[in-house]
Design a protein around this nucleic acid. Structure first.
Lengths: 154, 154
DNA sequence: CTATATGCAAATAGTTTGCCTGTTA
DNA sequence: TAACAGGCAAACTATTTGCATATAG
């Protein structure tokens, strides 16, 4: 993901987004945000909490939830909710879709092909589409590889 | 939704699906299934429970969850999980997508245009797409109408 | 010095589980 | 008479809330 940027650039983006709405770039918010960027794929609030706690032992889980919700509000982070269970968070602000692996239950980002934009018009008259997401499901490359070793197929 | 059919046809479909896996078409399962069909749009387990309870006062919420999960297993019902909060259930087995209204938080079914099938190929090499769903978000016709009365716009 | 955040613990919502009883192939 | 189902209550997980304390514009 890495979302283009040095630590400074990242901090910059955060501060900018927060200040737009008069919110403070507190140490907790900064750390939660960088932890989200550092964590490979779509962590839960709990997972972010664990990571942040390592160098901010006093942070509370409620604060992590607060921070993440704040980021969602200012459009810096997306919630990813495709299955029962904990909500996952995604700091990739590029337009993209998601692939959910049935086997390992990991979620991958899929860059949006420009052609998919026209999908917004395939909705019955009267609906206003402001955004959309495609959720693909199936087998990710890793799980596919594991499978073919042991015969079975999709 | 109505998913094509008289009460008999509906019961028939249910029994058929259940028996494939050696499951029994109990009164509870039948009632939960018809309640799901009767309820306008994507009810939660709780909502189905309320409805069924009216003519089956002894049914328990746990049984409703069990029934719904059973249906999901035999492919008769889909879970719809797009937001934090209760899981919703959808008895429409036609290929379709969903529209989620930001304002009234209702979910609508959107029939799949045949052209969308090729989306499955817009995923990086190595992923096997078994199915996908498009989740549209925006304003539904009702909420749009309410809005235009009071000036604002999307 | 006041609005904004945090930490903590308790509360809540949604769902699952265990266990015992009933039902049916 | 097993295997399958249902009812009930307790357990559990994810999240939210209330409130007292801290921090920074």
């Amino acid at each position: 993901m890495k979302n283009s940027g040095s630590v400074e650039a990242v901090e910059g983006r955060l501060c900018e987004c927060l200040s737009k709405t008069g919110l403070r770039p507190t140490p907790q918010r900064q750390r939660v945000y960088t932890a989200l960027l550092e964590t490979p794929a779509h962590p839960t609030a709990e997972e972010v909490f664990m990571r942040v706690k390592q160098d901010m032992p006093d942070i509370s889980l409620a604060t992590v939830y607060n921070c993440l919700d704040t980021f969602v509000q200012c459009g810096l982070v997306r919630q990813v909710v495709h299955e029962r269970g904990a909500t996952r968070y995604c700091a990739n602000t590029e337009e993209h879709h998601h692939f959910y692996c049935d086997e390992c239950h990991r979620t991958y980002d899929i860059p949006a092909a420009s052609s998919t934009r026209r999908l917004a018009f395939e909705v019955p008259a009267g609906f206003v589409v402001r955004r959309f997401e495609i959720v693909f499901q199936g087998l990710c490359p890793k799980c596919l590889a594991n499978r073919s070793e042991s015969a079975e197929y999709p």
